[in-house]
Design a protein around this nucleic acid. Structure first.
Lengths: 220, 220
DNA sequence: ATTTAAATCAAACGATTGTTTGAATCATAC
DNA sequence: GTATGATTCAAACAATCGTTTGATTTAAAT
C-alpha cells in the first residue's frame, strides 16, 4: 500500500517537525507514528532506536550545508585572496550557504537549529555523533581564518570564530518571544539586506584590531 | 533535624546542577531528592510542581544580574555620554554584570545558561514566566541603544542587539566539545583580556556603518 | 504539658515512556 | 501459484514519570 521509502522519509519529516516544535524529549514515538500514519514498530524497524532517528533527522539537513560551505571555502583558497578580501570571503563562505537555505526553506533551518540546540544536553554517544558532523568543516575554516588574520593569536582567533557562530545563531533562532516589539521589526528586513547587515557586523568585529594588553587598567 | 530553608535551598542547588548537566526532562524529581537527601514530597510541598521549581531555579540567578545591569544602565544615562562613548558604555553595562558573575562563579553562570536554553522549548506558561524575567530590562537597553546610534533604523538596531546577545552567549556557553583543540585555546585567556576582546568585537561590529542599500548587487 | 502548624516520611496512584515480539500482509521472483 | 524476503501490524513488556495521599515527626506558642 505504501512505498518503503515513503514511510521512512515521512517519519523523518514528522519527527523533525515535532522534535523542533515540542522538544525531543516531549515528543514520544507514539506522537510521531500517529501524525505519520504508520505503525509504532516502524521506527525501530527503519532506524533501530529513537536516538538513531534523531541522528538521521539532523544529518539529513547538516551534511548538504557542510558540503556547500566546503565548496565555497575551496573557491576562496583558489582565488588567492589576502587580508580583508580573504576575511570577507571566508565569512561569506561560512554564512551564505546557511542563509541561502534559510531563505528557501525558513522553517527547515529553524527546525534543525532548534534540534541541534537540544542535543547539546543529550547523552554521550548521540552527542559525539552529532558533533562529528561538524568536526572537519570547523577545522578547515579555522585554518583558513588563521591565514586571513595572521596577527591574531590562536586564542583570539578561536574566540572571534565563536563570536561569529553566535552572531549567525541569532539569525537562525526565532525571536524568543513575539510580544517584544523590537524583534518583530527585524523580520521585515529583506534577505539580501539582512545578509549585508551580518557581513558588515562580522567583518568589522572579526577584523577589529587586537586590544592592547593594558594589564590591570580599569578605564572608567 | 533540618532547618526548613536548608531543604528548600538544597533542592534549588541540586535541581540547578542536574537540570544543567543532564537536562531538565532527563532529570526526574527522584534524581533530585535522592542527591539532596530529602523526601520526594518535599518538592511539591515547597514549590508546588516541577515547573514551579524550574522557574525558581532560574529566577534566583537572573534577577541579580538584571538589577546590576539596570543600575549600570542608569549610571550611563546620568553621565550624559554621547556617540561612541555612550555605545561602549552601554555595551559594558550589559556585558560586565554577567562577566563578573562568570568570573566569580563560572559553573553557576553556565548552569543558568544551559537551563535557559532548554526552556525555549518548554510549555506555554513556564516559557512566558521565564521571558517575563527579561522583558523590562531588554526594553530599557534597546531604548538606550537607540539614543546611542540614532542613524540606524529600528530594524537594524534590533538586529545588532541580537548579534550582541549571540556574541555574549558564546562566552557563557561551554565549548561544544573538548576535543576540538581550537576551543581549548580560548579558555586560557585571562578574564580582563577576555572582556576587552568582547568589547573590541562588539564596539566595532555594533558601531559599523550601515551597509548601503545597493539593491540586487552581487559583488562576487 | 498541651496545642497548633509546619515539615517530612513511606507508599501508592494512574499515565506514559521506549522497546520487543510474533503473526499478518505486502511485493517480487521463480 | 508458490516461495521468499521486506514491511506492517496489534499487543504487550518492564520501567519510569509527576503527582497525591495520609500518617508521622518536628518546632514553636500558649
Amino acid at each position: 500500500m505504501q512505498q518503503p521509502k515513503e514511510t521512512k522519509t515521512k517519519l523523518l519529516d514528522v519527527a523533525e517537525k515535532l522534535f523542533a516544535q515540542k522538544g525531543i524529549d516531549a515528543t514520544s514515538l507514539r506522537n510521531i507514528i500517529s501524525e505519520a500514519g504508520v505503525n509504532l514498530a516502524a521506527i525501530h524497524y527503519h532506524f533501530g532506536s529513537k536516538n538513531a532517528l534523531i541522528l538521521e533527522v539532523v544529518a539529513r539537513r547538516v551534511q548538504p550545508i557542510n558540503e556547500e560551505r566546503f565548496r565555497r571555502l575551496q573557491e576562496c583558497e583558489n582565488n588567492n585572496l589576502t587580508g580583508p578580501e580573504l576575511l570577507e570571503g571566508l565569512i561569506r563562505a561560512f554564512l551564505e550557504p546557511l542563509i541561502r537555505v534559510k531563505v528557501e526553506t525558513p522553517d527547515r533551518v529553524q527546525y534543525t537549529h532548534r534540534i541541534l540546540m537540544q542535543l547539546q544536553f543529550g547523552s554521550g554517544q548521540l552527542l559525539e555523533s552529532v558533533f562529528h558532523l561538524f568536526d572537519e568543516n570547523i577545522k578547515r575554516f579555522f585554518a583558513a581564518f588563521t591565514k586571513a588574520l595572521p596577527d591574531l593569536s590562536p586564542a583570539e582567533l578561536s574566540l572571534r570564530f565563536r563570536f561569529m557562530v553566535g552572531t549567525i545563531h541569532m539569525i537562525v533562532v526565532e525571536p524568543p518571544i513575539k510580544k517584544l516589539s523590537m524583534f518583530s521589526e527585524m523580520s521585515k528586513l529583506q534577505p539580501d539586506i539582512l545578509m549585508e547587515q551580518i557581513v558588515s557586523f562580522l567583518v568589522a568585529g572579526f577584523g577589529s584590531e587586537s586590544p592592547k594588553p593594558q594589564t590591570g587598567v580599569n578605564n572608567k
